[in-house]
């Protein structure tokens, strides 16, 4: 009997050690940046915004004090999705991926057993990232290092957008080419300039759709307005910020 108890205790100790070792495998942001695309990573990060939940997968903008992670299509029940409010700390396991320049974490069925969760909610003080002013990095290679973070662009001037075959100058377009329409919850595209260079920014309708403050604020823009912008530094063949706030420049 004593032998059996001893064996059982050994097993418990071994399992505990294994669990601790597993926890110790959390990847730092620095290591995440250095990791190869396709590598399995476990990161601890804080939810900043929920882009969309679609039938058991969620897409999240997350950030820790060290850096930001875009979690694309993470398996998640609707019940759990409701718990992933901004500020929530999570530990998540997925694969580093890159899609049209966007470095993110994606999730493969192969990496888990059926029904196994890829994330857990951790007890911690909420963390909401302050937007970092990256206006000075526009047009530089350094901007990529800020990918997925909450960022701000200050003193941007709204420039006209045009539609092919139409001379009208618009302050924004529904869809990139103006092919959308009011009431269809299309993405909004608008041009802003700084120091003579014009950039195109987006209001991502899954993140902040029709009726949201930023969606309505962009619809109210006029060419020539000078504005401050906040958003997440998403990437698509170059920086493609998903704007979440627009205010008149101070």
């Amino acid at each position: 009997m004593k032998k059996l108890v001893a064996v059982a205790l050994m097993l418990v100790l071994a399992l505990s050690a294994f669990a601790v070792a597993e926890e110790a495998q959390v990847t730092s942001y620095e290591d995440f940046v250095a990791a190869e695309v396709g590598q399995l990573v476990t990161v601890e990060t804080y939810v900043q915004a929920n882009q969309s939940w679609w039938q058991d997968t969620i897409t999240l903008y997350t950030q820790s004090p060290e850096g930001a992670y875009f979690l694309y299509s993470m398996p998640c029940s609707e019940e759990d999705a409701a718990k992933l409010v901004p500020g929530t700390k999570i530990r998540v396991t997925g694969r580093k991926a890159e899609w049209s320049g966007e470095v993110e974490i994606s999730f493969d069925e192969d990496d888990r057993e059926v029904g196994e969760s890829v994330f857990e909610i951790l007890e911690a003080e909420p963390f909401i990232a302050e937007p970092e002013d990256v206006t000075g990095l526009l047009g530089t290679e350094e901007l990529a290092a800020m990918m997925n973070r909450k960022v701000a662009f200050r003193g941007m001037t709204v420039e006209p957008s045009t539609i092919e075959g139409d001379d009208t100058q618009y302050a924004f377009l529904y869809n990139w080419d103006g092919s959308g329409q009011e009431g269809a919850n299309n993405d909004l595209y608008f041009n802003v300039s700084k120091d003579g260079t014009t950039y195109t920014f987006t209001v991502e309708s899954y993140l902040t759709g029709e009726g949201s403050d930023v969606y309505e604020a962009v619809k109210a823009l006029n060419v020539g307005d000078v504005v401050d912008l906040e958003g997440f530094l998403y990437w698509y063949n170059g920086a493609n910020p998903h704007i979440t706030a627009v205010t008149a420049a101070e």
């Binding site: 679609w54 039938q55 997968t57 694309y72 299509s73 899609w99 049209s100 320049g101 526009l138 047009g139 530089t140 290679e141 901007l143 990529a144 420039e159 990139w176 080419d177 993405d187 595209y189 041009n191 260079t197 014009t198 950039y199 195109t200 987006t202 991502e204 899954y206 998403y234 990437w235 698509y236 063949n237 170059g238 920086a239 493609n240 998903h242």
Partner: peptide, 19 residues
């Protein structure tokens, strides 16, 4: 990579790999 300048178009990025 630098930010995309005016003149190029997107298709449906963001909706790219709609699940």
């Amino acid at each position: 990579m630098t930010i995309r300048e005016q003149g190029t178009g997107y298709r449906v990025q963001g909706k790219r790999r709609f699940p």
